[in-house]
Design a protein around this nucleic acid. Sequence first.
DNA 1: TTGCATGCAAATTCTTTGCATGAAT
DNA 2: ATTCATGCAAAGAATTTGCATGCAA
Lengths: 147, 147
Amino acid sequence: LVQNLTEKLIKKLDDFVLKSGLKRSDVRNKILEVIVKKARHFTIADLIPVLQKRYPDVGRATLYRTLPIFVSSGILQEGPQDPLGQTYYELAEGEHHDHIVCLDCREIFEFHDDQIEKRQLAVASSMRFSVENHGHVVYARCQDLSR
Amino acid sequence: LVQNLTEKLIKKLDDFVLKSGLKRSDVRNKILEVIVKKARHFTIADLIPVLQKRYPDVGRATLYRTLPIFVSSGILQEGPQDPLGQTYYELAEGEHHDHIVCLDCREIFEFHDDQIEKRQLAVASSMRFSVENHGHVVYARCQDLSR
DNA sequence: TTGCATGCAAATTCTTTGCATGAAT
DNA sequence: ATTCATGCAAAGAATTTGCATGCAA
């Protein structure tokens, strides 16, 4: 399953790479593989040790050069900004969702609400904006210490 | 008017400072004055040159030490994160609002929508979270080149 | 072959800290 | 007096860039 997803995304990456006059690379595929396994939400800081453990030869700089390519090719999207200011990335698979960042347990949860999405569009349109994207992060507490 | 606002906020700052066992300082008041004049939304990077022009003696480090105090005292709040990742600050005056960041002209606009606020609360509550705060940023284009 | 990709190390940029001095209480 | 505030410079941390070498097409 994960294997399938990785391969599917590598294909997506290849499409973008060819279209953009770039070249395929094993290192990018390796990075993608690690991301798919770690999946969900991660920061660059999260990813570095995992990547270096699996593929010690991959340099940090490459990560900084690669992630923007993944975003451009639609594989990743930028997720919420945590209260400390680090940018999260996440796989762009699946439908759009917003985030709840738990201030107690530091985990990130997802939510989706059609009404919010619709109102957001309506409000921006009424101000004569065309919406490209949005980030909606709710900071909250789970208050469940066992979680 | 601006003068009044500055003085009002200095008073607010004094309250916090006393309550917290800190001490009053002219430099903090100067920084506050510059912020009130520049008002609205700014990043630290925005503020530094303005501040240094008006008060060349104030060091950068002081800014980094001062802004968190302003946030704690309720004078400033953190605004949207721009697409480049810089944190905006803004005066906490007035009612809560969310932001539209224009990808064309780079300006930041505000909006407020009760329905969105309510739904947001409802959704988080249904997931057993208690909401502390939130950031909602819509990235959009004004498409009006004259703006 | 040509030009992108990569690792490494140096360079940048942004932010924090240590320390001596000055100000507030 | 005591303790916080501040500037400066040094230290850190995060990210970007230059360059020589390695691959992909």
